[in-house]
């Protein structure tokens, strides 16, 4: 049986797996998710694919305690607006930290996680979430 929504998710794999958006080389604006047209430059805009570095900071956040069915196992969890270093702001879960330790302005980096599952026998959707930057031995 064909499963509803598979193609819709599949079309976004590039952007949700690897944080691929667009950059307008005419006005210098970065976009995420990717856009087909630069809303600032319109016809003069020159959009090219851009892979974000995956670093940013928490602009604002909320702790979710009443969750949809698919997310009940994760309660309580944090959903934040993350401001990427290149400019765009996106909504994502913050993981690898206790919710009470999350702070506005905290540095975060992208990580790869399971987003949701289409039921027990359905596809598993993977994509980006963010976590606090890690201490790396020997890194200056």
């Amino acid at each position: 049986m064909a499963e509803k929504g598979v193609a819709q998710v599949w079309r976004r794999f590039d952007s949700i797996y690897n944080l691929i958006g667009t950059h307008c080389s005419n006005c210098g604006t970065y976009y995420f998710p990717p856009r087909l047209v630069c809303p600032k430059c319109r016809r003069k805009g020159k959009l090219e694919e851009y892979k974000y570095k995956g670093l940013g900071k928490i602009h604002t956040f909320s702790i979710v305690r009443q969750a949809p069915e698919n997310f009940k196992r994760q309660v309580p969890y944090v959903v934040a607006q993350v401001q990427l270093d290149e400019g765009p702001r996106l909504t994502a879960q913050i993981v690898n930290i206790d919710p009470e330790d999350v702070k506005i302005g905290m540095r975060v980096r992208v990580c790869f996680r399971k987003i949701t599952e289409y039921g027990e026998g359905g596809i598993i959707v993977y994509g980006y979430k963010f976590e606090p930057t890690m201490i790396v031995t020997g890194h200056e």
Binding site: R73, R113, K114
Partner: peptide
Amino acid sequence: PGPDEDVVTISTE
């Protein structure tokens, strides 16, 4: 693993 981690996410990281 966390509730949103599995072999795919661990392998990718």
